[in-house]
């Protein structure tokens, strides 16, 4: 009789070695990532107070204590909201075109290709484009709205891709059932297809918002800096939270650095909340789909 042989030491060694490397890389990854989060929380809490959330930096010198990011938080919320208002309809309609109308035409292939290209645009380039087009050529001033335009260029391709993915998940039977009832195509899309994919699209949109909320470079070139509260995104420089962190980080005093950490903490909290909201929307509409 043949006995069951053990596997060769060489194979066993390789298996163990890879296991070790995989565990090791996990450990290597955890260290800096946890370090970042831990430092943000630890250092951020020092100035994460009511004054920080309710005051601007007006009349506060670099070395002064106090001051806050209220102007930046307001700016970021407005800019992100405007960017969503611009990019969600365009992105969603484009996805609808790609899935429902364009299927395979040359135009849709071109759009699809350039959406991919657009996904790869560095954020600073989108800022430069708005600077060149909106501010230098058209002559508008730096404003929150200009920042929102730059952000929406980054948002659009993300929205298109995630919405497209979700629309493709809608089974064709559903569309055909609707056509069979004599419902026109556009009503089928608005009454059957979109509601079916609503949660998926909403999740994608929230993730896209979360991503642009942390973008700094496009804002730097389009909204400029200010230490004052400016609630009107359409005129004059406006602050943004990522910009606030950058600005404070380049000032060489401890109080400024503390404000930078607190700003980073606020920014992370906002982004995490948006992410959480995205997950909740996903769970809320489709409890069975969670991985």
């Amino acid at each position: 009789m043949t006995t069951i042989q053990r596997i060769s030491p060489n194979r066993r060694f390789k298996d163990r070695l890879v296991q070790f490397l995989v565990y090791l890389s996990f450990a290597i990854a955890v260290v800096p990532l946890v370090a970042v989060l831990w430092m943000v929380i630890k250092n951020g809490l020092a100035r994460f107070d009511l004054e920080f959330l309710t005051h601007s930096m007006r009349n506060i010198g670099a070395t002064d204590a106090g001051g806050g990011a209220y102007h930046a938080i307001v700016g970021t919320l407005e800019q992100v909201l405007l960017a969503s208002v611009i990019s969600v309809p365009i992105g969603l309609l484009t996805a609808i075109y790609l899935v429902e109308y364009g299927q395979g035409t040359r135009l849709s292939r071109a759009i699809s290709f350039f959406v991919d290209v657009m996904t790869g645009i560095p954020s600073v380039v989108s800022g430069l484009f708005i600077l060149a087009f909106w501010i230098l050529v058209l002559g508008f001033s730096f404003s929150g709205f200009a920042g929102a335009l730059a952000l929406s260029i980054l948002m659009m391709p993300t929205v298109v891709r995630s919405a497209e993915e979700m629309l493709l998940l809608v089974p064709n039977d559903l569309r055909e059932a609707s056509y069979a009832l004599g419902v026109p195509k556009w009503r089928t899309i608005t009454k059957v297809v979109l509601p079916t994919s609503f949660s998926g699209i909403a999740t994608g949109v929230m993730l896209a918002i979360a991503r642009v909320a942390g973008e700094t470079a496009p804002l730097l070139l389009t909204v400029f800096f200010t230490d004052s509260i400016n609630t009107d995104p359409f005129s004059g420089p406006q602050m943004g939270l990522p910009l606030f962190v950058f600005d404070q980080a380049t000032r060489p005093t401890d109080t400024a650095i503390d404000r930078a950490w607190a700003g980073a903490l606020t920014l992370i909290l906002i982004v995490m909340l948006l992410n959480l909201a995205a997950r909740l929307i996903g769970w809320w509409r489709s409890p069975a789909k969670g991985r």
């Binding site: 009789m1 043949t2 006995t3 069951i4 042989q5 053990r6 596997i7």
Partner: peptide, 20 residues
């Protein structure tokens, strides 16, 4: 048992079993 040898004996490797 495969020819009298227990596949689930503690020192038998699943990988070797599947090879057989």
């Amino acid at each position: 048992l495969l020819d009298g040898e227990d596949l689930y004996a503690p020192d038998v490797e699943p990988v070797a079993v599947r090879r057989m």
